[in-house]
Design a protein around this nucleic acid. Structure first.
Lengths: 198, 198
DNA sequence: GAGCAACCGTAATGATGGTTACGGATTTGC
DNA sequence: GCAAATCCGTAACCATCATTACGGTTGCTC
């Protein structure tokens, strides 16, 4: 099978898995349903992903890669670190509270092995926070942060930006914040960090 | 059956359910295992709780009641609202990140009906936040909050206190913060709220 | 074009678990 | 004390599902 053709097939399988995961949850998503919806066979699923957890482990990796790539793009987008953080923050919040991230978090919460959750943490927040901190370090070089260490500023920014929205999305099922809300939260978080730096 | 005897039996059943829930997750916790561990019969479980979800629904109600009662006690504990919030915040954080709350959040994340999550939200945060806001209103009467509305102060306090610890406990499996950490977070959250009010 | 690998559609295997049922023992209420 | 209700321990029922297997089809490589 050609590489591109295989990639396309995998996207179809992964889209079917996400669709079912969002609708039925982790335990309610069967390999048979994924195969049927993707027009793939069980044998292909098991050959490509190893087992059920392997399939969802792959989804985690893809999702966290995408989050990091989009955040990196947003943070690299301009010469002004503060503006980049405001844009990147909004982008990050939208991704963290999006349907796919929420579904994956629910899968991880339901996974008794803890493996999905470990992957989300190691490939997600653990790699995202340093990106934010680096951009705060660039901002610090302008003197705007005063005595506040960039790492502290980054933590504060994330706290104010995200707060407890993720758990409320995953458990309480609140709707995802709309783009205006994401922008407003990012602006407010940055404003508060700057005020606390003064 | 005497009321007290029944209450004692229910506590045994509920303790068994928590133990298994914390170890095996929601889907991994079977009614048969709960019955066996509690020394109860399946018929009793179904008679008393209706079905599996009913059992865990009852755990949610008991847990959120306890959280609210303990918080209420902590907030009512002194004449000084600021001191009460500092103590109450630490207490609240310890409860929200405790093993039982985390296990229930995982159960809710795994529950495809969404009912457990709804109950956690309605009986938890939705009732806790107003308690915090009332105490901030008492604090506002002293003039310390300046122009910041008490409801806004309460939201900020919870944001700074809890941040994303819950999702990280539920998904990433970070350890629960120890009592000193809970106190320190509560103190820092209050300090930051007061700084932002000035 | 031939041979082999991969994939599809389907069935089978073996295990699991929510829920109900039941005989016997225990408890409760009058 | 007795009848009824409740509870225990266990089995049964029925459905579900992860995973493997298999005959036939399709795709790839030489």
């Amino acid at each position: 099978m050609k590489e591109q053709a295989r990639a396309r097939r995998q996207e179809q399988i992964e889209a079917a898995a996400y669709d079912l995961l969002e609708k039925k949850g982790y335990d309610g998503t069967t390999m048979a349903a994924v195969a049927r919806q993707a027009g793939a066979s069980m044998e292909t699923l098991y050959r490509w992903y190893g087992d059920k957890q392997g399939l969802f482990r792959a989804l985690v990796t893809l999702n966290t890669q995408e989050v990091r790539a989009r955040l990196d793009t947003a943070l690299s987008g301009g010469a002004d670190p503060e503006a980049a953080l405001r844009v990147g923050g909004a982008e990050l919040l939208a991704m963290l509270t999006g349907a796919r991230a929420v579904a994956l978090n629910r899968a991880a919460a339901a996974d008794p092995s803890g493996e999905l959750g470990r992957a989300i943490a190691e490939e997600g927040r653990d790699l995202v926070l340093p990106l934010i901190a680096e951009t705060f370090a660039a901002l610090a070089a302008t003197g705007v942060l005063g005595a506040m260490p960039p790492a502290r500023a980054a933590e504060l920014f994330i706290t104010l930006l995200v707060a407890d929205l993720q758990i409320r999305r995953v458990v309480a099922r609140i709707p995802a914040p709309d783009p205006d809300t994401c922008r407003a939260r990012s602006e407010a978080a940055m404003d508060l960090v700057l005020r606390l730096s003064a």
